[in-house]
């Protein structure tokens, strides 16, 4: 199916203002930030009156097309993450880093103080429970980076929503601001780091 055909199929909005197009993805994240997004619960249906989804874990669109907002969860841990992040930056007018992993690498960045080779060895070669160990090295596997990086080290990030994950109210407040044409602003109580 062609790209343009994929982009149809969203409900027609007769005369209503154009819907904002949103793409989301998880790089080296746990999907907890996406879960917090879904934690807006029934407000999802309100949101759907104003937005349509491009590539997200909920749709079958594999590559992000031109979008108003790109939301990225997770830091960068391999070559493929870099590629996807650049695709998002190219296509999205506003790029939002969501959650501790995207902002500073988060928990996966804990591996930054250990040697990647030693780490792989221990998991795949010397772990005692293994019947037969070997090092995964197939060309299909994207090259891991020696360190996990936050998004802003690779692309320009427009907004950051902190938290692990950020509370659903913070995510909702962000979208409500953008939909209303206001500059997004997280008030007191919506900025969490836990």
């Amino acid at each position: 199916m062609s790209r343009s055909a994929q982009r149809e199929g969203s409900p027609v909005n007769d005369g209503a203002p154009r819907k904002l197009r949103i793409a989301t993805t998880s790089l080296a994240g746990c999907f907890g930030c996406h879960m917090s997004f879904l934690d807006i619960d029934e407000k999802l249906f309100d949101l759907l009156r104003h937005v349509e989804f491009d590539r997200t874990p909920l749709t079958d669109i594999k590559h992000c097309g031109p979008c108003d907002i790109g939301v990225v969860e997770g830091g960068i841990c391999n070559a493929e993450n870099v590629h996807v992040l650049r695709e998002f930056r190219r296509n999205c007018k506003i790029l939002v880093a969501i959650g501790a992993c995207a902002l500073n690498g988060g928990l996966p960045a804990q591996r930054n103080h250990v040697d990647l080779g030693a780490c792989l060895q221990e998991v795949y070669l010397t772990e005692p429970g293994l019947a037969r160990g070997c090092m995964p090295n197939d060309p299909e596997l994207p090259l891991p980076l020696d360190k996990v990086h936050p998004l802003h080290e690779v692309v320009k990030v427009d907004y950051s929503i902190p938290g692990c994950p950020p509370p659903a109210e913070a995510i909702w407040s962000f979208f409500a601001d953008v939909i209303a044409g206001r500059t997004p602003h997280l008030g007191h109580g919506l900025i969490h780091y836990d």
Binding site: G32, L107, V123, E140, P142
Partner: peptide, 29 residues
């Protein structure tokens, strides 16, 4: 499966009581 995160390795040396809150970051679902 193309991602490798190394949890087993980097939890080494951490105090054990951190584990329940650390390891759940494997999966937000």
């Amino acid at each position: 499966i193309v991602e490798f995160r190394g949890f087993e390795k980097f939890v080494q040396g951490r105090p054990y009581w951190e584990l329940p809150v650390m390891v759940q970051r494997l999966c937000g679902i």
